[in-house]
Design a protein around this nucleic acid. Structure first.
Length: 804
DNA sequence: AGCACGCCGACT
DNA sequence: GTCGGCGTGCTC
């Protein structure tokens, strides 16, 4: 006999970050289940909030009177057992609120909205009733009610003439469609119906004729279109009992109108087959192994994914595939839908809230067996998972950069263990963390070293921009790149140009020798701080003046580095007036669908050159691109981030892979100020393994990931001194519990020390094994609660993507 | 988060 | 003398 429910309420604070006991009204005892959303009274004054039932018990834990659950929001649990458990684990490992974790697992529309209102109880003065309440029974509370009005209302409330009521609004709406079903069953029935009509009822005769021809249930909209009859005629028909009008649920399907061609599995190469077999075997055996598929660009990773998923479906399981948001192009989606048709649900940011909700419900009702989506799709309510796949596993966007700061890779591995199914991480350029785990045997390494079409990897030429700039002071284009572009124009072949925008203007580089100012202690580039007119290291806090002369070659051309796409487009148009250029960056893709439209235009050869930022490096596949140019390879290298080399290598390798995908040979030209930098050298040779070995040595020397874990603790406050002081106090509390193997960096101010009038200070704890650290950090969060009331904000980020 | 309780300055 | 400021504690 379950009588009590434990409920986690929608109040994201540390003090309320635990289940509360509630009594279950008799009417709900049979239907209530863990994972359901409920509305409960919480706190004084009868305030209503939404909550999640986390457990049902026969005994109450709380020693006192319990309140009872108001209403059930769901008929079936919003979170199944797996997701409920996962949410708890996530809250613990990411230092975030349980309720926030549960909310992020669900479509946005399932998040409750709250309203507070004043309701008239007794008799109130006529003037107030008309002027304030506008003759309504309730007045919605809002910030813009005047102080005077509030005072009046408060007085009435105390006198018992008003009460405050709370509304918990569920925004999740199911879209419905009116359907027409013919009731009349046979010729005789139709004849009888016609006979009863007056001779001049022309429209109704038409309706009867239509119904006789169409006994099947059709949408009213369609019937109206086909008959050209008005809705009134159908309503009349329903009244006479000829037909029935009913409401049917419909899904908002974003790809409803696009025709997707069915595709067949492709013949696999020997390497692909080995990879497919390994993962499929694990899936069948219920093994939760993690595999790392390292496949060069164009090696057919996607086909491997598709066939593994097909095998999972064939065994009655479901499959989840994660793709970075920018790679989730219609091309990609259509490829999966082409193979699995209606069994596919897609979840990404381009969908409307309603569409996301519908896709989610299709999964939850087991109508979709394959899910493709970006980061948050890792929470898709698929049951009986047979495999989880994560494409481009190195992408930093898999880690959410706001609370809850989860990494989709960790979540995927957790779900693999829960479901006893394998996880497949795929990339041409795996993250060092994953590749190192494969080295140690934690993951199983699978490799696709060759391109599927047998084409060699494109030839990559490095252009030293220091030399080019000596000839042409301000140009962004070397003569070599320009000549190559002209060549493509003549041959009517397409080119892709990438402008690397990352790290725009935040570091200082010498235009003559490529020298970048580095921290003497940390081997990390110094960041320009315009507020203090200084160069600073974000790791150790080292500070020095902005250089006027290059310390390396004594040139005066040492300055901020960075260029915008618009400027480059203009320059290119002047250099190549006959070229048709398409620009793709945050500005031109802001509107919904703009991204797709630009790619579609380029695909249908409406332009010769596609000029864009990082977003063009991912997943686009245009057979006629024979030239890829990188205008500035270096910008990311200047970032104060130990992953700068890794990111640069990954980006260059990926963009290079865009050239020569079909049977035409591709060429890549990379312009750089640092042609001898190892990241660029290895990218030129497309040598991931070489890069991996070299970078691992550097990480080892610097005590960075994957040799060390890192936790970031950040404090912010309006007063810089207060923020710094608190950060030092916290650091001093952590130090005693750490072993001498751990390293604390900082406290240092953040690169943009002041954001929204707040100052940020942080420390980074690097460690291999500190069993007491997690509990200590939780304790710090708890004990600093009173401080958060005084304008402090404390953030803990396990394995941050950037330390900046 | 948001509400109530509780203790100190400017008003009827 | 009271109204109301916001600092503090609690919510099953």
């Amino acid at each position: 006999m379950t009588k009590f429910a434990q409920v986690v309420v929608d109040v994201p604070t540390l003090q309320t970050n635990r289940p509360y006991d509630y009594a279950i009204p008799a009417a709900l005892t049979d239907t209530i289940l863990p994972g359901m959303r409920v509305v409960v009274p919480f706190g004084k004054g009868g305030r209503r909030v939404q909550g999640f039932v986390t457990a049902l018990t026969t005994q109450q834990h709380y020693d006192g009177d319990l309140k009872a659950i108001d209403t059930l929001v769901d008929l079936r649990p919003a979170l199944n057992t797996e997701l409920l458990q996962l949410s708890k684990w996530m809250a613990d490992t990411t230092y975030s609120f349980w309720i926030s974790c549960m909310q992020t697992m669900l479509p946005n529309v399932m998040r409750a909205k709250y309203e507070k209102a004043f309701r008239i109880q007794g008799t109130i003065p006529e003037q107030i009733r008309t002027e304030i309440f506008h003759n309504q029974a309730e007045l919605l509370y809002s910030e813009d009610l005047s102080d005077q009005t509030l005072r009046t209302l408060s007085k009435l409330q105390q006198a018992g003439q008003l009460e405050t009521v709370y509304h918990v609004k569920n925004r999740a709406r199911v879209k419905t469609q009116t359907m027409v079903t013919t009731v009349l069953k046979n010729r005789a029935a139709f004849a009888a119906a016609s006979a009863a009509l007056r001779k001049n009822a022309a429209k109704q005769f038409e309706l009867l004729a239509y119904l006789e021809r169409h006994p099947e249930t059709v949408p009213l909209k369609q019937a109206e279109d086909e008959t050209k009859l008005s809705r009134a005629i159908f309503t009349a028909g329903a009244k006479k009992g000829w037909l029935e009008l009913s409401q049917q649920e419909v899904y908002r399907d974003p790809t409803r109108d696009t025709q997707i061609e069915q595709t067949q599995p492709l013949q696999l190469t020997a390497d692909q087959k080995t990879a497919v077999d390994a993962v499929v075997a694990a899936s069948k055996n219920g093994s939760d192994r993690t595999f790392l598929l390292e496949g060069v660009t164009g090696s057919g990773k996607t086909e491997v994914y598709l066939q593994i998923m097909a095998a999972a479906l064939a065994h009655g399981k479901t499959a989840l595939m994660l793709v970075p948001e920018i790679a989730l192009t219609p091309q990609m989606v259509n490829r999966v839908k082409g193979r699995f048709g209606d069994l596919v649900a897609v979840l990404h940011s381009g969908l409307s809230e309603g569409e996301k909700y519908d896709e989610w419900r299709r999964i939850e009702r087991h109508e979709a067996k394959v899910v493709v989506g970006a980061r948050s799709a890792v929470f898709a309510p698929l049951e009986n998972l047979g495999v989880l796949i994560m494409d481009e596993e190195h992408e930093s966007s898999y880690k959410q950069d706001e609370s809850p700061r989860y990494h989709a890779r960790d979540v995927a591995i957790w779900r693999g263990q829960y479901n006893h199914c394998p996880v497949l991480l795929g990339s041409a350029t795996p993250s060092l963390e994953s590749r190192a785990r494969a080295q140690k045997g934690v993951y199983q390494l699978l490799r696709l070293p060759e391109r599927i079409n047998g084409q060699p990897l494109p030839q990559v030429t490095l252009i030293d921009m220091k030399a080019a700039l000596r000839k042409n002071k301000n140009g962004n284009f070397s003569p070599q790149l320009l000549t190559a572009l002209q060549g493509r124009l003549i041959k009517h072949e397409q080119s892709v140009l990438m402008l690397n925008r990352r790290g725009f203007s935040s570091f200082v580089m010498c235009r003559d020798c490529g020298f970048v100012l580095k921290c003497p202690n940390c081997d990390i580039s110094l960041t320009l701080h315009m507020d203090t007119h200084s160069m600073r290291c974000h790791y150790c806090g080292h500070e020095e003046p902005i250089p006027q002369i290059c310390p390396n070659c004594h040139s005066h051309k040492i300055r901020y580095y960075g260029t915008g796409t618009e400027k480059v487009e203009k320059e290119l148009q002047e250099l190549l007036p006959e070229a048709r250029i398409l620009r793709m960056d945050v500005d031109t893709t802001r509107k919904k669908g703009a991204h797709e439209r630009i790619l579609q235009q380029f695909g249908s050869k409406e332009a010769d050159i596609l000029l864009g930022t990082q977003m063009i490096a991912k997943g686009l596949d245009f057979p006629d691109v024979t030239l890829v140019g990188v205008i500035n390879a270096d910008t990311a290298l200047g970032l104060p981030d130990f992953r700068a080399s890794e990111r640069t290598f990954q980006l260059l390798t990926q963009v290079s892979g865009r050239a020569g995908r079909a049977n035409k040979e591709g060429k890549v030209i990379i312009q750089t100020f640092n042609p001898e930098h190892y990241a660029i050298q290895f990218a030129q040779r497309q040598d991931y393994e070489g890069f991996y070995r070299h970078e691992m040595q550097i990480r080892h020397r610097g005590n960075y990931s994957p040799y060390y874990y890192s936790d970031l603790v950040q404090v912010s406050h309006e007063d810089e001194g207060q923020a710094a002081k608190m950060m030092f106090e916290i650091a001093n509390r952590i130090k005693p519990i750490l072993s001498d193997q751990a390293i604390i960096l900082g406290p240092t101010p953040r690169s943009i020390a002041r954001i929204n009038k707040k100052y940020y200070y942080q420390i980074v704890i690097k460690y291999k094994h500190e069993p007491r650290l997690h509990a200590k950090l939780e304790e710090i969060l708890e004990t600093t609660q009173t401080e958060t009331r005084h304008g402090f904000q404390i953030v803990i980020d396990h394995e941050p993507q950037q330390f900046t």
